[in-house]
């Protein structure tokens, strides 16, 4: 049925501010990312490690944001992809292929296959059940890896690092920039609108023609690819991995907190959150080495209680103070 009208369509707004989030924040983040290219030129090991960490967590947070933020399926086990990525590197290394540029694409393929194989059954679960299933999977995979001797078992794997150490920094930069670019494309595309429609109301989305299963699995797979790519680089840059480091609780929880802190369901939010949380973490470390974990826990609680949709939400066109009050009343129990 074609509906024709005499009136001219009003100015349209494709994806602006809507599901991409604040355009200003995005510009700032892209600017910072370009500046971050220069970090290895400082020849300062501390800064290089610090910023590689931010890039790593940004990629993981961007990944989590795709399934947890845009699609509304809160995963408590995205670290499984990070771990799979790290072990892809480790396995390659133990077969003599000690090359991060080979490991990253392979890790992405491994993550995609894993996500599709498990996503079809577990993404039929709604809400909390999905979250619990992802946590279960992460714990199970860690346990399996710890018991497979070919993967180094519980003792771990050592990877020999190349002489040009900064290549791992640039690899992580590319993983982060790629994740940001992919998120940006998704947020402006039909694909992104399908994800948000699923988050807002899955039944209504289905009636409008959105194949929810397909989009959820795709979102989870892309989410996993980002984490796996970060994990693959991490294994080389750190030089040694074992199950507790590859599947660590920190790597599972930090990306979630970063997304909440920066702005859930926005393009730039996860990166903003990664920068801020890392800065907070570093400050607390240097000032309160003994009770740093306690302070850090308090920061997490404060974020979840008072900024449930993140800092960017405050200056979003639709946010402001009223937006924050709305989000408080909507999200707080």
């Amino acid at each position: 049925m074609a509906v024709a009208t005499a009136t001219a369509p009003p100015a349209r707004r494709v994806g602006l501010g809507g599901i991409t989030g604040s355009p200003l924040a995005l510009k700032v983040v892209v600017g910072l990312l370009v500046l971050a290219l220069a970090v290895p030129l400082l020849h300062n090991g501390y800064y290089e490690n610090l910023f590689r960490g931010i890039l790593m967590f940004s990629a993981m947070a961007l990944g989590w944001n795709l399934i947890g933020g845009y699609t509304g399926y809160v995963s408590f086990g995205n670290v499984v992809f990070f771990g799979l990525g790290a072990y892809t590197s480790a396995t390659l290394a133990s077969h003599g292929i000690e090359n991060v540029w080979v490991a990253v694409p392979l890790a992405i393929v491994v993550a995609a296959m894993f996500a599709v194989a498990l996503g079809v059954p577990i993404l039929r679960l709604k809400g909390h059940y999905f979250g619990i299933a992802t946590l279960g999977i992460a714990l199970a995979v860690q346990e399996i890896v710890a018991n497979v001797d070919a993967l180094g078992g519980g003792t771990g794997v050592t990877l020999h690092q190349a002489a040009w150490y900064s290549q791992y920094y640039y690899a992580m930069w590319l993983v982060c920039a790629g994740s940001l670019l992919v998120t940006w494309f998704i947020a402006r595309s039909k694909f992104g609108y399908a994800l948000v429609a699923i988050r807002e109301n899955e039944d209504a989305a289905a009636v409008l023609g959105v194949n929810a299963t397909y989009f959820k699995v795709a979102a989870w797979a892309i989410s996993g690819m980002m984490a796996a790519a970060a994990g693959a680089v991490f294994a080389f840059s750190t030089g040694f991995i074992d199950p507790p480091s590859a599947f660590s609780v920190d790597n599972n929880v930090f990306p979630i907190v970063m997304v909440l802190l920066g702005g859930i369901g926005t393009v730039a939010g996860p990166v903003v959150g990664a920068i801020l949380l890392t800065a907070i973490n570093e400050t607390l470390w240097s000032h309160f080495p003994q009770i740093h974990t306690l302070f850090f826990g308090a920061v997490i609680v404060i974020v979840v209680l008072f900024l449930p949709r993140g800092l960017l939400y405050l200056q979003n066109a639709r946010g402001g103070l009223r937006g924050m009050i709305d989000s408080l009343s909507a999200y707080r129990v």
Binding site: R13, G18, K190, Y193, A194, V196, A197, L208, V210
Partner: peptide, 19 residues
């Protein structure tokens, strides 16, 4: 069942994209 966080236009556009 509106998609609450999307604009009114975006709500309708989802149908126009996937219908």
């Amino acid at each position: 069942k509106p998609f609450a966080s999307l604009t009114v236009r975006e709500n309708v556009a989802v149908g126009a994209m996937y219908g």
